[in-house]
Nucleic acid binder design. Structure first.
Lengths: 207, 207, 207, 207
DNA sequence: GATGAATGAGATTTCATTCAT
DNA sequence: TATGAATGAAATCTCATTCAT
């Protein structure tokens, strides 16, 4: 269909996105291995050759998808609060946003993150990207906690690194459970509870 | 109708276990899809036919593995504390045991649990078994928290169901992160931190 | 179960028959290739080893079954009429008996005969046995027709060999159609019609 | 959606035919079950994938083969005589053509028809196609016989349906015997004999 | 002898990738 | 450049047959 003598950069980006979108839909619904290139061809309404023109292999497509997925997320978190907020407020806002991201969106996004997680130990670039995001998020959280301790908001006997890790694990676990559990539970209630627990658990006693 | 099994029940159990062990090793190392029946044949030192005599398909073998995996776990948790322990002590012991189970053992077990989790939405019996374990663990934790509230140990404004879910998610997330992250971090330190957070977060103020 | 110190000849015959019966049931229902030895084991309520004790291979079992099948049939035909019957009467009785054998019995027997027929070109002993029965039946019929011609009952311009072949083909075709057609048709009506056609077709004109 | 087939419809038809031809050759020579897809691959000089691109399974290939086989046959019969021919002439021409089709061609075609017949009770579409052809042929013959009776050519006491069935069975049986019997016999002589028998058996007596 | 667990060659089918057009 | 037919290695699974007990 395209008649453009030289395919514009923008057009190429659009096609690339179309492929990634198709892959995301299918990988999250059926998993990486149960999705065939033929299905991606069909879903994207492109041709085999076209897809291989943009990605050299199925794995490369998968890796590119992870890249796209992770790009936004941390920036998103950082933009949710003002530097002048108290540490407690910051954490509460983060919890709020993280929950919304997890529970508020479809299970699709959580499912595909799981795909990346399982694939990680077996696909080098997936592993390193996961590690990178993991470390960044961890540092991000630990810094806030450290800040809270320094400001006297949080208890002195809290280890910022460990506490950050706990928060991170809770978020990851929530995403995991939300994506893989079919039981009905009022997941939305959780945000408040987490905020409360975090607050009480971390807060320096008012005494 | 067969008049007498030519081999003892015990022998068959042993062979079955040998197969499950081989599958567990490989599935946790390479993942379900990247493990071929041929490899399981080789690892188990049996023959194709033998394996298919015990399990009708690769999927059934996977499901049986999950069954075996989950059998012990909850019982194990329950046996770690005495009924007369305080709710706080119970939770602390549970955290201790759960951590030991996750971090103390090899990543192998966590990896394979992840395999089950990812497979869950796509394999019926895996899903239902996961759901069952999930609900049982949730009820188990919620009951302890409820008990703590009733006894005045824990704060009244905590919702036992949500709090239990948070604990569960934390455990699941920890297992996930531990299994998929190659970063070095002093994971063992975490147990204490979690115990502390839990305690402070849940405890009724001494006032 | 058998306690006999020496397994009697009769016992062995019974077991052999049990196996053949099981094989016949399954081969006629599901075909030779779609029947596994395991199924024959199950149907016969014997063991693998037992069956291989009586038949060295699946093919040998198949051949033995054909043998048993064909044993009775021609003798049966011959016993249906008296030597002093007219040729016409003989043929009519044969038609009657043949029809009863085909339509009167279940499709099972016809189906298994078909199995033998398809297998014939590929299994030597099945072929030679089929040929033998074919020739014998052909000679048998041709002799009666020849007798009828000689006695002046049948027209002189009939070629006994060809006519016998036609009769034989009709019988075989009827068996084939009966076994493989699911359409409802009053098959029983056919016997009279065939008798009439045979009579009129072969009979010397009364002139 | 595909903008333009890269190969012509005709090309695809040719490849399809090549596969069917290879399958026909092998199925008729070795039977459906004794022919492996590998052999069809070799015979067709294509690849596994190519064949599965045209037929989704071995069974589907078999069914497609039957379809192709049956397509022409009845039309062929109908075109052999003129509407103004007498019923007797029509039947004689049919017999002639049928014989030529059966005996004149190689046993290959008959063998593969037998394959279809045996498979019929076990493969739904094969059964229904066989039934359809069977019914059509039967009606076709019965109509001619009925016409002959109405015109006074044939005897009134003949039941057209039964007589047609007998003719059909004879043809089917002849095909069966021809395909499966290795005995030498002057099969070509049969046509005349059948024509004669049919004539005499059906014809109204000149009285 | 009888048993049925074990064997392993071989069958069918899938699917990431290539490349002629 | 874009297309999708073709490739073929590799996966899962079957089953006639053997043989240790």
């Amino acid at each position: 269909m395209p008649m453009s003598p030289k395919v514009s950069q923008q057009y190429k980006q659009e096609v690339r996105d179309k492929i990634l979108e198709a892959a995301e839909t299918l990988f999250s619904k059926k998993g990486y291995y149960d999705t065939s290139m033929d299905e991606i061809v069909e879903e994207s309404r492109l041709s085999k050759g076209a897809i291989y023109g943009y990605f050299r292999s199925k794995e490369e497509l998968f890796v590119a998808l992870q890249e796209r997925q992770l790009e936004a997320s941390l920036e998103q978190l950082k933009s949710t609060f003002a530097p002048e907020d108290s540490a407690r407020t910051k954490l509460e806002k983060i919890v709020e946003v993280a929950f919304t991201a997890i529970i508020g969106t479809s299970k699709k996004a959580c499912r595909i993150n799981l795909e990346f997680d399982v694939a990680a130990p077996r696909i080098r670039p997936v592993q390193s990207r996961r590690d990178k995001r993991f470390r960044a998020t961890h540092v991000f959280l630990a810094d806030i906690i450290r800040e809270g301790i320094n400001k006297g908001e949080f208890r002195r006997d809290v280890d910022p690194d460990s506490a950050a890790m706990v928060l991170l694990a809770t978020a990851d676990g929530l995403s995991l459970d939300w994506a893989t559990t079919t039981l009905d539970f009022d997941w939305k209630l959780l945000a408040d509870q987490v905020k409360k627990l975090v607050a009480e658990g971390l807060l320096a006693s008012p005494a």
